[in-house]
Design a protein around this nucleic acid. Sequence first.
DNA 1: GGGGTGACAATTC
DNA 2: GGAATTGCCACCC
Length: 109
Amino acid sequence: MGEKNIKQAIIRRIRAIPRGTVMAYGDVAAAAGFPGRARLVARILSESDGDLPWHRVLRASGQIAFPPDSPLFAEQTQRLRAEGVRVENGRVKLRRSGPDLDALLWAPD
DNA sequence: GGGGTGACAATTC
DNA sequence: GGAATTGCCACCC
């Protein structure tokens, strides 16, 4: 399998993240079928032209993956809040295996 | 081929 | 919850 396909699969997965929700780098990779490739997701996002919802991807801890004083940090925070996501102190509460909401957000393609 | 780097993560203390 | 450690993988020099 060529790497191009992996990249495409991950990009598709990122585009599929519903508005107002967030996903961790590792989760995106796993959901695309490539567990353990979190860093690849990060690299793809850094290379992307900005046509994908990069602001919906954060660390597994729920923290924004930029230094708090960086402009990207501010932009990501603003974009998330614009979608109704609560961002406090540079972090978002990730509810995994939580209430019924999960089944809805993590529904299959 | 070796070594350092990075929008990461799981484990351990 | 935080800090340190280890694993990871693509990319660059």
